[in-house]
Simulated assay, not measured.
Amino acid sequence: MSETNVALPSMRVSYEAGALNESSLAATWYEQLQLWFDEAVRADLIEPNAMVLATADTNGIPSSRTVLCKGFDERGVVFFTNYTSAKSHDLKATQVAAATFPWLGLQRQVNVRGTVEKVSSAETAEYWAERPRGSQLGAWASPQSQVVAGREALKSSLSGIQRRFADAEKVPVPPHWGGWRIRPDYVEFWQGRPDRLHDRLRFRRSNDLWTVERLAP
């Protein structure tokens, strides 16, 4: 057994960075998310908009991966991807997803769960226009989640796309690419506390009405 495995049971951190109380909670989940997101940015956390997205297929087999949140408001949390990817196949089939913002540097996490919908073509176009040209070309070149012969096959595909759009001032949005929005029914704000008595406050929606509940750690 490796030294790392021997040490695993003793690896622990005492969470003492802060507290989360009902009295300090914002009126809505998205306002609270904005407050914490701003604090994550000010704390210089690496990619504070990174979130772990969880989906499942029609057989209930789960998958998770890290994606980048590209917007949130009262409607939900948005990310962009290839609509032919494995995650998109799951989302089309089940119409539900969950995501976690793992702000470990602040001893916090935010968990979002709800139904999903595609964002409008206008929203997709607006975000697409902000992407670096290289990322735009990569979206055209990559058959996301499909088996490829090797990295050279990807490089060859990218070279072909670069030639295709060499004279184009603007690269158009691929028809197979766009945004998804998670429309939450459940948003939990988790703050680590000493002795594992963590603060867990959950916004829960029922019949379009939101309630706040404290969960036991």
Rank of each mutant, 00 (worst) to 15 (best):
A122W: 05
M51E: 12
W36N: 01
V116M: 00
L154F: 05
M51D: 11
R42A: 15
D208R: 02
R204K: 07
L53Q: 10
R193K: 07
A139F: 13
P217M: 06
A43I: 11
R202N: 03
P174N: 12
Q34H: 09
R65F: 13
R163V: 13
V147Q: 12
A168C: 12
Q191E: 07
M51F: 15
Y15Q: 12
N59C: 09
S156M: 02
Q136N: 13
S88V: 08
I61P: 05
G138F: 14
N49R: 10
R12Y: 10
Q191S: 06
M1S: 04
L215E: 02
R131I: 09
T211V: 10
G179N: 05
A129L: 10
T100P: 00
R164T: 15
Y127R: 12
S156L: 09
P174R: 11
V67E: 03
S135R: 05
T211G: 04
S24C: 08
A216T: 08
L25K: 05
G134V: 11
E22F: 13
S145P: 12
V52R: 14
A149P: 01
F101G: 05
L197S: 06
S64V: 14
A129V: 08
R12D: 11
L35Q: 13
V119H: 03
I61M: 14
K92H: 14
W128E: 07
S88E: 08
R204C: 01
R204Y: 03
K118W: 07
P184H: 00
L104W: 15
P102V: 15
Q34L: 10
S142Q: 11
V110G: 05
D167A: 14
K70N: 12
R204D: 02
P174K: 11
A168E: 15
V112S: 01
V187D: 01
L8C: 01
G134E: 15
R202P: 03
A153S: 14
A129C: 05
E47K: 11
Q146R: 15
N111H: 09
K118N: 06
E16L: 13
V110T: 07
I182L: 06
L104C: 12
W29F: 03
P172E: 11
R108I: 11
A99Y: 02
G71R: 11
V6M: 07
N5W: 04
D44C: 09
T84D: 15
P62T: 13
R151E: 12
W140K: 13
S156I: 00
V52Q: 15
P9Q: 04
P62A: 13
T115E: 00
V173Y: 06
S120Y: 01
A125Y: 06
R12M: 12
V148F: 01
A166T: 06
F80D: 07
L137V: 14
L53P: 09
T81M: 05
T55F: 01
D199L: 09
I182T: 02
F165P: 08
F72P: 06
H176P: 00
G114C: 03
D185P: 00
L20W: 01
A129D: 09
T58E: 15
L91G: 00
G114Y: 03
G179E: 04
I161P: 10
A125E: 11
